[in-house]
């Protein structure tokens, strides 16, 4: 019952956040100097043609009216144009991209596989790598291993994704010819090729993110190792592996999971730069495409979806707290 109440409260909060994000996206978009109707008007663009294009796409109404039409479309669907050329976007319609001739939800669905594949593998890698490296560093504090891990993690935290990606491609793709230099093969089509094409982007993302987790885990672990209950556990005669793995790590994971939730949510919304370097068309590439072409429906749709994923990931993290630390009640 308590969990249900918690879930309902969070759901309401999520919807509110998404509403605010969508309003802000609309508002910001209309402050831009670029006019989407003019971009779609063709050339030469006479005032009459511009007005016709604007009316067809629904950009002739004030922004709040367009926003309400957008919200209405989610429940009732929308149609654009008239006569035999009417373009339909069935409910739930999260917008229609005139440039790509497709409903935004269809476009998101066709790009999500890439992003999920990229994010899932990278997240597993960086979590495992980061937490184990951080733990080992903390346990062997001051050792050569500790110093090496911490130096490497500084490089990881501070390196630009674009540079690491390109260097990775140059080294492992071109020079050593070990992995493909880009592209994506769907999991359903060929699982081996799927993993083969993703291994380098996974490693690049993991290198960039694991560093943060290693540092976070190390700091947290050092603090916890000084706690009374750890001393008690050791005094009871528990083995070091059990002390670290069972008692310390569990508490270390609470802040790690918090950061992980946000990172994963962000990554699911699109790893813009990594996708670009590896010529992968995920949500990040779709978002960049929308920004570059002033494609408002696509921009709002992808932004909202990315926000939804972040909110959802945070919700999952909140649920996980209870599992990791029974003292935290929901």
């Amino acid at each position: 019952m308590r969990l249900l109440r918690f879930a309902a409260g969070r759901l309401a909060g999520m919807i509110l956040v998404l509403l605010i994000v969508s309003i802000l996206t609309y508002a910001v978009f209309y402050l831009l100097p670029a006019d989407p109707a003019q971009l779609s008007c063709g050339k030469p663009c006479t005032p009459q043609r511009l007005a016709d294009a604007r009316a067809f796409m629904g950009y002739d109404a004030p922004w709040w009216r367009q926003y309400l039409d957008f919200l209405g479309g989610i429940f009732a669907g929308r149609s654009f144009g008239s006569g035999s050329a009417v373009v339909r976007c069935a409910a739930p319609c999260f917008g229609y991209s005139f440039r790509l001739d497709a409903p935004v939800s269809t476009l998101i669905a066709s790009h999500i596989g890439v992003t999920f594949s990229l994010a899932a593998g990278a997240a597993v890698l960086w979590l495992v790598l980061g937490v184990s490296a951080g733990t080992v560093s903390a346990v062997r504090r001051g050792s050569l291993l500790d110093r090496t891990v911490m130096t490497a993690s500084i490089a990881g935290v501070s390196a630009p994704a674009y540079l690491v990606g390109l260097l990775g491609i140059l080294l492992f793709g071109f020079t050593l010819d070990m992995v493909p230099v880009g592209g994506y093969v769907p999991l359903a089509e060929n699982p081996v090729q799927w993993a083969w094409h993703l291994i380098l982007p996974w490693c690049v993302l993991a290198f960039l993110s694991a560093a943060l987790y290693a540092r976070l885990t190390r700091g947290q672990m050092l603090e916890i190792l000084g706690e009374d209950y750890i001393r008690t556990a050791r005094a009871k005669g528990l083995g070091e592996r059990r002390v670290i793995g069972r008692h310390a790590l569990r508490n270390v994971l609470v802040p790690v999971v918090t950061v992980f939730g946000m990172d994963l949510g962000g990554l699911l919304g699109g790893a813009v730069i990594t996708e670009r370097v590896f010529s992968m068309q995920g949500l990040g590439a779709l978002l960049m495409d929308a920004v570059g072409n002033v494609d408002l429906p696509l921009l709002v749709g992808v932004t909202l979806f990315a926000a939804f994923l972040i909110v959802l990931a945070n919700f999952a993290v909140d649920l996980l707290y209870g599992v990791l630390d029974p003292r935290i009640s929901l």
């Binding site: 779609s40 063709g42 050339k43 006479t46 144009g81 050329a85 373009v87």
Partner: peptide, 14 residues
């Protein structure tokens, strides 16, 4: 000429 299909080169339109 259809607004539904605007965006192309349209010198002929005028």
């Amino acid at each position: 000429f259809a607004p539904e299909l605007s965006g192309g080169l349209g010198y002929h339109k005028t």
